[in-house]
């Protein structure tokens, strides 16, 4: 399995914090079609890991939900570079997803003008059935992600704007803090 010289999270952070440029080709999914193709590869790679055999589809599912959210909520409105950074390291059991999109606060404000800040937006996104693309039957993807993380040995750190959500099976809490990259 390919090993990264630099931590996959650090590479994702560098990309979103740096100037507007496409990430390295091996991490770049410019469209949801490419993302789906690479997600399928993740599924195949995780399927071979004995310790994940019971719930690797759930890992693929939450990666799919988060990645597709980037495309769905920024369609036609990418501020600069469209598409997402998607990388994983099966040896380290790490997956990194990143986008240079509008952020959850902006998309939620379309339907919830009362949302105050990035922390508030993340809390709503992970706990309430609401979508920046209402109406329609949508808005439960991150609730699903939260449910999976809390039920399995998975840790997630989710950043949007100046806030971060940390959830793990260990702490069983949704921890939301200010965070600046």
């Amino acid at each position: 399995m390919e090993l990264f010289n630099k931590d996959t999270f650090a590479q994702a952070t560098d990309w979103i914090g740096g100037s507007a440029r496409e990430p390295e080709a091996r991490f770049y999914c410019p469209t949801s079609s490419e993302f789906k193709g690479r997600l399928s590869k993740l599924q195949s790679d995780l399927e071979r890991l004995p310790d994940l055999i019971d719930y690797y589809p759930l890992i693929v599912a939450i990666v799919g939900e988060i990645g597709n959210n980037s495309f769905d909520h920024n369609l036609g409105n990418w501020p600069d570079i469209s598409g997402i950074f998607f990388s994983y390291d099966t040896n380290k059991r790490q997956v990194a997803l990143a986008d240079r999109g509008q952020g959850i606060l902006r998309t939620l404000k379309r339907v919830r003008p009362d949302v105050k800040n990035d922390e508030d937006a993340l809390r709503i996104a992970f706990t309430e059935v609401v979508s920046g693309r209402s109406p329609g039957s949508r808005g439960n993807g991150l609730k699903f992600v939260l449910g999976v993380v809390l039920s399995k040995t998975i840790e997630i750190n989710f950043f949007s704007g100046a806030a971060m959500v940390s959830v793990s099976n260990n702490n069983k809490n949704l921890k939301i803090d200010k965070f600046l990259l």
């Binding site: 599924q43 589809p57 599912a61 939900e65 993807g141």
Partner: peptide, 8 residues
């Protein structure tokens, strides 16, 4: 035959 299925 379905491996991964999501709410979306």
């Amino acid at each position: 035959g379905v491996i991964t299925f999501t709410p979306s």
